[in-house]
Structures are given as structure tokens and as C-alpha cells.
């Protein structure tokens, strides 16, 4: 289009907006380096005392550990269930399977506060409140749709003739699944597992409702810190979270780039 001036301004505006999306989070970095005992911007000298605090505090370390256990378990279970389900839906592909797919995506779109209510309601009689199992189950239900989406996207580019060929050559259903289908949808499965991990690792709304004392995840502890709004250890924790997000993101970008290269060549 010839409207060059407008496009140009718009592009500059878009860059400013994109930077606005990312940069505010970085404020946690200087705040975490303050030598003071309260939340403040450091003036002149910097100190790592809040990181030291973070990594020696039993409470924070146990929260890190609990979050890791819950997120890894969630990711594992959600990936297995979500992948199986996606393959099943892909094989059936009928009117009913599309209905089931729409139903299974609901946990992603139903407001988190309603999901939290639902789990809270059911976990009371089941005795799952404030337990690892309760959190992992709840997070799995929220995360599985993510896996369903990424694996389905991979399956959409998979050639069904390959499956047919494998069967014609005498492979069983199970062998076909393991040796033919799974290797070709690996990028989708991997992305799904990563998304499921991040979702559980960050999840706060449902966690606030169904955890209390014995299970105290990292987001839960951060939430408390944010509400109290005094202890700079929260800033240090935020920096660690940003670093972890960044690493996960880089892994994701590199692996997806490798996959696109593979399909091109």
C-alpha cells in the first residue's frame, strides 16, 4: 500500500507497544538488588542479600520444590492423556468427536475463578484439598486442553497414508502408534508438555482455593509476598521466575525452529 507515512508511524507505534509489553517485568531486577530491607530501588550500592535469603529460606526452597513436583507431574499426566486423546479424536474424526473436542477445550476458556470454585466444591468431599494429588489433578484438567491443541496441530500435517502403509506392512496398532505416529508428532507433544508445565508452574487462582498449609506452591508464596508488599525477597523470586521463563522460551524457540527446518529440507 502507498500510505507509507501512516504505515511507518504505525510500525513505530507497534514497536513501542511491544516493548511496553515486555519491559515492565524487568523492573523486578533492580528492585531485587536493593541493599535495603524493604522494597525499594537501589541507590548506588547493590546487594545480593535477597537472593541469598531466597536460596537459604526453607519456606521458599520448599515452595520451589513443591511447585516443581506439581508442574512436572501435571505436565507428564496431561501430556499422556492429551496426546492419546488427540490421536483418538484424529482417528475417529466424526461429528461426535468434534463435539467432544469442543467440550474438552472448555477448561481453557471457562474463567479460572469458576474452575477454582468447581475444584474447591468437589475437593472438599473427596478430601483432596491441600494435597499434592488435588493440585496435580486440577492442574492436569486445566493443562490437558493445551496438549490437545498442540498435538492436534501436529496431527493436521501428518499424512494418514503413512499410518495405512505401516498397517499394510503388518505392524500392529500399538507399533504403528509408537514407531510411526508418535515420532512425527513429537514437536506437538513436546510443545504441549512445555505449555502444561508452564501453566501449572504459574497457576495461582485455582491454587489459592485448593491449597492452604501443607502444599504451598511458589505462586502461592509470591501472592502472599505481593499482598504484604514489604519483603524484597519477592523481587528476587520474581527475577528467578523471569530467568526460568526466559530459558524455557529459548528452548521452545530453538526446538520449534529446528522442527520447521526439518520439515523444509
Amino acid at each position: 500500500m502507498k500510505s507509507g507515512l501512516f504505515s511507518h508511524f504505525n510500525r513505530v507505534g507497534a514497536w513501542v507497544l511491544l516493548l511496553f509489553l515486555v519491559t515492565p517485568a524487568l523492573i523486578a531486577i533492580p528492585v531485587s538488588l536493593t541493599p535495603k530491607r524493604f522494597l525499594s530501588m537501589p541507590k548506588g550500592e547493590l546487594s545480593l542479600r535477597h537472593f541469598e535469603m531466597l536460596f537459604t529460606s526453607e519456606e521458599w526452597l520448599s515452595s520451589f520444590f513443591q511447585s516443581a513436583v506439581i508442574a512436572v507431574s501435571t505436565s507428564l499426566i496431561a501430556t499422556i492423556l492429551g496426546t492419546l486423546c488427540a490421536i483418538g479424536l484424529w482417528r475417529v474424526s466424526s461429528k461426535y468427536s468434534e463435539l467432544v473436542r469442543a467440550f474438552l477445550l472448555l477448561p481453557l476458556i471457562i474463567p479460572q475463578i469458576i474452575s477454582a470454585m468447581a475444584f474447591y466444591r468437589l475437593w472438599i468431599p473427596l478430601g483432596l484439598l491441600d494435597s499434592y494429588a488435588g493440585l496435580i489433578l486440577a492442574h492436569t484438567i486445566l493443562a490437558a486442553p493445551m496438549v490437545l491443541i498442540t498435538v492436534s496441530a501436529s496431527l493436521a500435517t501428518f499424512d494418514p497414508k503413512l499410518e495405512q502403509a505401516s498397517k499394510n506392512l503388518g505392524a500392529s496398532n500399538w507399533t504403528t502408534m509408537r514407531r510411526v505416529i508418535l515420532p512425527s508428532i513429537k514437536p506437538g507433544v513436546f510443545a504441549g508438555a512445555l505449555f502444561a508445565f508452564i501453566l501449572s508452574w504459574d497457576e495461582i487462582v485455582v491454587t489459592l482455593f485448593i491449597s492452604k498449609f501443607s502444599v504451598y506452591t511458589l505462586p502461592r508464596r509470591m501472592w502472599n509476598g505481593i499482598r504484604e508488599n514489604t519483603d524484597p525477597t519477592v523481587a528476587a523470586a520474581a527475577v528467578v521466575l523471569i530467568a526460568i521463563t526466559f530459558i524455557a522460551f529459548v528452548i521452545f524457540v530453538i526446538s520449534s525452529r529446528r522442527n520447521t527446518k526439518k520439515t523444509v529440507s
Partner: peptide, 9 residues
């Protein structure tokens, strides 16, 4: 980026 990190920021 985690919603909590953003809110904190």
C-alpha cells in the same frame, strides 16, 4: 511472563 511477576512489577 508470569502474571504474578507482571502484577508485582
Amino acid at each position: 511472563i508470569s502474571i504474578l511477576v507482571r502484577t508485582f512489577s
